[in-house]
Amino acid sequence: MKNVLITIFIILFAMPSFGQRFITKTGKVSFYSDAPLEKIEAVNNTVNCAMDTQSGFFVVKILMRSFVFEKELMQEHFNEEYVESEKFPNAFFKGQVQNLKQINFKKEGIYPVTIAGQMTIHGKTQPVKATGTFAISKGAIIASGKFPIKISDYGISIPGAVVGKISENVEIHVHFNLKPLKQ
């Protein structure tokens, strides 16, 4: 009896710490880089993203080979020479919504958000802080935002022949249509 009461107590008091989890497996991440040699643009429409509305935990998993470029040659170079997709197949982001208290997930609207965390690309991890919005509508959260990264921070080197012709800075755009996880 005592054990049953302890179990009920633990369940009742542990539950509020787990909020509703929202997920998508068809998140969109794109990046854009403008430089004298050429503009580089790619999009990935099969990104996994999960968020816990109680704790503000925010996680993103990106399969590098799923980035699609306009030109096949660029895609090959991206996978083989720059991000080395065979060696480092995934990029990750694990972070926290910084202004969670200012978001009412039960009330429809557009809320500005700041997310800070650690991003791993090409096996290198760096702190990242991104601003964007949460659009809450019809029980879903549309998370979108953009932030810049410097590719050298992630150990991605530009071949000598094209240094100065390919931008060191890349702008990352994210768009996640997060829906409640059905248990």
Binding site: K25, T46, N48, K61, L63, S66, V68, S85, P89, N90
Partner: peptide, 12 residues
């Protein structure tokens, strides 16, 4: 087969 993201195997 683009690979495994730790959750799912992705075919494009």
């Amino acid at each position: 087969c683009a690979g495994y993201n730790g959750t799912d195997v992705i075919f494009e």
